[in-house]
Amino acid sequence: MRRMGVSRVLIPFYIVAMPDLPPPHLRTRARGTELNPETRFDAHVREAVDDGWAPDEPRLAQTEVRDERIRAIIARNTSPDISFDRSINPYRGCEHGCVYCFARPSHGYLGMSPGLDFETKLIARPEAPAVLDRQLRAKGYRCDVIALGTNTDPYQPIERERRIMRGVLEVLQRFRHPLTIATKGAMVERDVDILAEMSGAGLARVGISVTTLDTCLARTMEPRVPSPARRLKAIETLAKAGVEVRVMVSPVVPGLTDHEIEGVLSAARNAGAVAASWIMLRLPYEVSGLFEDWLERHAPGRSAKVLSRLREMHGGALYSSEWGHRMRGEGLHAELIGRRFDLARRRLGFAEGLPPLRRELFAVPLGDDRQASLF
């Protein structure tokens, strides 16, 4: 459904300018943050000043979408605490606007702010399906699971119009290439035809994140994400079609959402999820300041407790990026959350582990724009 008051401007993407300053009297309806801080790469600090020329009526923050020309779409990583070594993200930035999103600092590499810019100045990669087809045909390519939606959500609102994720899935289906998806978007239901077929062949799994069952909390913390009930409905739709679905209790916010772990798992199991996982709240770089500001605005009574728990888990800091530590934290409260999750997972009958996705089915299809099929 198109949201009233939000327009999307499609601009060819070649060079990204320095981040705009948030103008005075800017309305940020249904946005995760009102802040637009400089990045750690900026040499200067800028401050917006009201010079008296601001319009009488506040201007609504609009979503802009630029197109990026790409030469490759598969990103590689060597992190020892991530289960995949390659991923695809059809978009940069995310209109979902989750204030806690660990991916926000990545917008700094584009010369834009991890704050409001991250959720209003988006980059689309329309050539992704064609470029992926070319990469998978490379003589030296070796098949392994591709993770989709690892940095920004592939089913954020602009996917309804752009359909880049759909194109990527169609390519992976033709190549019989294994994949996993991580999303908060109920739009994943649109692609149930592809996902059901691939899941039945042992080639696909979907992870859907449910942070909280509290609709009011979700609306302020992740403002343009489908409601918790709608995400549970998406789990049910996929599960009934035969798709293996993992519920991701991610992130767990200590002192704010950790009391809901059992409730989220129970609701997801009833909807048909077969596996479950969790990740502790991560606040790298500029995200910590954005989240602190959000706490003071929307949960001032919980702010001190949440920040105290996070510091206990990260040696006095709000976050530590050390491998083996960043996903869970450490200390008493981190251990208690982990134990509660494991007990609830076993009690509800979630699978201890799912069989690996199949890699041996990968095959370069005959017939494309360059080579016609003989049959």
Rank of each mutant, 00 (worst) to 15 (best):
P254V: 04
L10I: 11
E330P: 03
A30W: 14
V264W: 07
G32F: 09
K240S: 09
P105R: 05
A276E: 02
Y14T: 14
S308N: 10
Y100T: 11
T33K: 02
R92S: 08
E170P: 01
D42I: 04
E64W: 01
V206M: 13
S266Y: 02
R59G: 03
R339V: 08
R224L: 10
V131R: 05
R166W: 00
I88T: 05
L136R: 07
S227I: 07
A54F: 01
V306Y: 00
C143A: 15
E222R: 10
P300D: 04
I73K: 07
R46N: 04
G185S: 14
Q156T: 05
R166I: 00
E360G: 02
I279K: 06
E127S: 15
I74G: 03
D369C: 07
G367L: 08
M313I: 02
S266T: 03
R230E: 15
Y155K: 12
L172G: 02
S209P: 06
Q156I: 09
A271I: 05
M4E: 10
H333E: 13
L265H: 05
D56F: 06
E222H: 13
R104V: 12
R76Q: 10
S308M: 05
R66G: 09
G353A: 13
Y14G: 07
V99F: 00
A72N: 14
D214T: 08
L354V: 06
P55W: 03
R92F: 06
M4N: 04
F375H: 04
C216S: 13
R162G: 04
D293M: 02
G331W: 00
G272V: 03
Y285T: 04
G255I: 02
A273D: 03
I181W: 06
F362R: 11
G93V: 02
L148G: 06
V364D: 11
R163M: 12
S209Q: 07
I158V: 15
R246S: 10
F350Y: 15
Y109D: 09
L310E: 00
R125T: 12
A229L: 15
T220F: 10
T120F: 10
D214W: 07
R162E: 13
L195P: 04
R104P: 11
E170T: 01
E38N: 01
V45C: 15
V274M: 07
D191N: 12
Q62M: 08
H177R: 02
V192R: 12
A75S: 15
S79G: 00
L343M: 11
R66L: 12
R328F: 13
E352W: 04
L179D: 02
T220N: 13
F175Y: 15
F362I: 12
C143Q: 08
G200Y: 09
T78M: 04
L336F: 10
I235L: 03
D193V: 06
R282P: 00
Y319V: 00
P157Y: 11
I73N: 10
G353H: 08
V168H: 05
I123M: 07
T150M: 14
R205C: 04
P24Q: 05
G5F: 06
P154G: 14
E161C: 05
R125I: 10
P365E: 14
A372L: 14
D369E: 15
R76K: 09
G167C: 13
L295H: 05
D85E: 14
Q62F: 06
P355M: 11
F375L: 11
P223Q: 11
A48G: 09
E286F: 01
T257W: 03
